[in-house]
Design a protein around this nucleic acid. Structure first.
Lengths: 124, 124, 124, 124
DNA sequence: GTGGTCTAGACCACA
DNA sequence: GTGGTCTAGACCACA
């Protein structure tokens, strides 16, 4: 369900947060949907439970998830439907800015980027 | 010459390393070219000299820069010309992987990304 | 575990780097072995933590050590076993070249060196 | 006459000092012998004259060389003959200590070192 | 508990 | 003028 990579530069809890946010924004995790338990996820990805727990807690504080005693965490009701396309794109702003800066400094063209993106998209 | 943002999540010295690497790979910093002195850069960006120094030291260890005592650091000879396009693109692999994963999870299309990239490219 | 001498011409962090490299090459520090924490080493040798940290960081960049956040640094997996004798000897090339040059200029004989080495070896 | 390597870790002026000291100790540079001029050496090794000059000045302070106005520097009279073997060996103490420590940490044997030395000796 | 980043500032080595 | 090393100390991020 989630792709967590402890080697990657970005902290594990942050990877998890981002992914939940995105799946919720896209509606793949609909309002009310249940998330895997802390323990489950921790085991599956061989990660410290505290790391998962931290991500869940922050997502709760953010209003993305809801916690009900004794039950699994669920996607909060307020995020009921798929967010509009432009709003979803905004989540990539930072990444895109960084990418374009890097590509320019490498003297690549927009077409280089576009080809690379198409390739990667069809690959997976 | 360099764009350093202390606010951005990534450490300053790492931003500098990345940018030097890219300018060298693209040939904008040619072999033998002198880099600004540690103090100069530190002043210009209101950053501690050690932060700049750390970046330079790591770039030397990596073989991108060369140190001659008492003189400014220079671009190492082995990186003489512009690296081939594919090699330059490789430096963006990680970023591109991450971007595509994020876009998929947001249920965006490749076209959404491409439009965004073209827009950002012409903006700056 | 390590012998650090602040008086010796060579910088402390460099002494540490060399020793770790050698203990790893010889297998005395096996793959996965944990290194003492930065603070521990710093205290033990009455040195600033940043000095130790610098060495660890460079050893990580070099691929000798691995960092897992929140945990002690470990010997990287790729250096799993004792390096072959010839490869270990290569680490002394520079020193040996220098020694032989010096001895020749002093008009000493190889036998002078050999006697001195045997003596020092049994001494310690 | 001298072997100066700007890439080597050790500073150039120090390399020069060591070599002069050794050639004097061995008698290859006898009392009264003239040294090449600063300018000459600097040109020959493509080195800053100040670097050579610094070495000469320190050797003078040390009493190894003598400076006479308008004439080339000469080997001081007090070092008239070849120093006794043990005294010459002492100049290698530091190097030998370091070598033996390194070899031990690499789990090499004295025989490994000795073979390597014999090989290097006959090579050049 | 682990290590990382950064600052301010001293002092050194080299050319 | 160049860069290198080290300290003392603050604050952060992660597990």
């Amino acid at each position: 369900m989630f792709i967590l990579n402890p080697q990657s530069g970005t902290p594990i809890y942050r990877q998890l947060i981002e992914q939940v946010r995105r799946l919720v924004a896209s509606g793949q995790l609909a309002a009310g949907a249940e998330l895997p338990s802390v323990r489950e996820l921790a085991l599956e990805h061989a990660v410290n439970p505290m790391t998962i727990s931290k991500a869940y807690t922050m997502l709760e504080a953010e209003g993305v998830l809801e916690r009900q005693r004794g039950k699994p965490m669920t996607v909060a009701a307020r995020d009921r439907a798929q967010a509009p396309r432009t709003h979803r794109l905004e989540q990539l702003e930072g990444q895109l800015d960084h990418l374009v800066l890097a590509a320019r400094q490498l003297e690549l063209t927009p077409e280089d980027l576009i080809k690379a993106i198409r390739r990667k998209w069809s690959d997976k």
